[in-house]
Design a protein around this nucleic acid. Sequence first.
DNA 1: CTGAAAGCGCTTACAG
DNA 2: CTGAAAGCGCTTACAG
Lengths: 338, 338
Amino acid sequence: MGASLKDVAQLAGVSVKTVSNVVNNYPHVTPAMRERVQRAIDELGYRPNLTARHLRKGRTGIIALAVPELGNPYFAELAGAVIDAAARHDYTVLLDHTAGLREKEVLVSQGFRAHVIDGLILSPIELEAEDLLGRPGDAPLVLVGEREYDAPYDHIAIDNVAAARTAVRHLAGLGRQRIAFLGARREMARQPAHLRLRGWREELTAAGLPHDDSLVAATDGYGRWDGAAAMNALLDRGAQPDAVFAYNDLMALGAMRALVERGLRVPQDVSVVGFDDVEEGRFSTVALTTVSPDKQAIARLAVERVVARLAGAPQLQPERIRPGYTLVARESTAPRTG
Amino acid sequence: MGASLKDVAQLAGVSVKTVSNVVNNYPHVTPAMRERVQRAIDELGYRPNLTARHLRKGRTGIIALAVPELGNPYFAELAGAVIDAAARHDYTVLLDHTAGLREKEVLVSQGFRAHVIDGLILSPIELEAEDLLGRPGDAPLVLVGEREYDAPYDHIAIDNVAAARTAVRHLAGLGRQRIAFLGARREMARQPAHLRLRGWREELTAAGLPHDDSLVAATDGYGRWDGAAAMNALLDRGAQPDAVFAYNDLMALGAMRALVERGLRVPQDVSVVGFDDVEEGRFSTVALTTVSPDKQAIARLAVERVVARLAGAPQLQPERIRPGYTLVARESTAPRTG
DNA sequence: CTGAAAGCGCTTACAG
DNA sequence: CTGAAAGCGCTTACAG
């Protein structure tokens, strides 16, 4: 049991209000009074009970972040950036992961831990727009990532179509003609890879290249293993790509591994481009070319948006915000010289 | 503004106690009463205010986890496992990272967010035993990882000396004679690599191999870049190792990258063993041999320990708990055949 | 099985 | 510049 405000007030011989003033650095307190109270605080080892404060103020200073999978370094790096950005606004971060399961995403979006979180940043995979309809509570929700919704919520995401086109253009510029796409899904409509696949298709057309659907590999997940499996499936059915654009770095890395195992050389035989710019791609034996979204900006904007809404920014319209990205060319798409 | 218990009670024409009984699934409530109350709850869209509950009960159901760096996949994977383990006990996880900075670790260990977290799991890098002395508050603290302290706290960590010896034994068994260690620090006493370096030294002795200090590379950090830099430094000073045991997988991966850049082959010229078994090592072009700590067990045990202390387990002595580990041999230490 | 009331530890008008 | 008092929304003995 720690000491309470009342205990401190009693020891210092003042009212709780005065102690509260001191604790909260209320300016108009005489130095003598401040010192007297501080002495009592030190003596008792008093620490304010934040829970009581929360109840009283209706705010906790905690925002939740829910990502699909912390094992994916993209989300781990993003989470780190969100924690830092939140700290700059004196917020702490409650972290949850959804495994990309709609059910879990719904649970989270409906406000898990009601009243203990002031706001929520969610990176959904399978969530549908209708799931967002009757959100109870008033904790602001900010969406992050490549899924798009017709829903009145802020959404922070780079322009995935344009970014994908940049990647494909890079490959086409290298003279590659049979550019595969790894990471589609069976039903395409609203899946995460949707926009990147569209970018792939658009840019192929722009480059005057046919888009051969046998060069598209569908997967169930988005990890290294899925990338390797998709690559193998493609090769097994005789697709013979000379380049691969993968949904993300993890899949690209898995694909590279599969290529090497089959005796194909990267980049000489097959060029590879990923998406996310996770650190690991910089250190793979063949360093990975990738689309690098500005993760710091994504994290910062998401947090700022939550904070602005909490500050009651008047008439803040739900907005689609597009942070920047760059194509980082590395060894996996080095021009054929040797 | 959500509805309160009182609002529900009023609408249902009962006392708040009765509503509380329903909300908390108190068994002795007549079905008719339960239904009446439930109807009022539904109508008002009532959701209990957890903050108030927390204040009243003195518990929040939140435990904090502080790791050095989420960008290190080992910690990201561990964090994921902790979140899952905590969920099994109905706890949510507040996540923070310390960058391995003593100052931040002290802050965290002193109970950041007092009263909002019920307990704390901390993986320290630079924290000293004395920093743990006058911990205020009574939130249980469980330590995790390779730093060891003479302090009355639970500590979950695999046997780092034995694990390191296993790795070095594996290398020696391959006939390697000049086994380098990557990841020491300038002042060795209490640094994280301490125990693994000791294991390296002990096993070298046991194997009848001299331990040449020129084969030990010190680093400042523990990332991929540090591993590459340490490897290069070692090679630059003409050390000529035929094997490398790195403090962790990230450093091992960085070292492999450096070796390849210098035209050295892994494993033919230099065998490499890491530590952590992060998924990325399974997919590197040369799959990485590693010591694999049982992360699930570490996470589970840490959470269980916090929960047990919160449940007021009587006379629970602070304990050092040692989860298991295995050596996973992969391509980076394949026997020389070719 | 249900109700009336106190209290968790704060903050904040409202006085003075 | 400081004090007395109400109230945030729950839970929990204590009665009945």
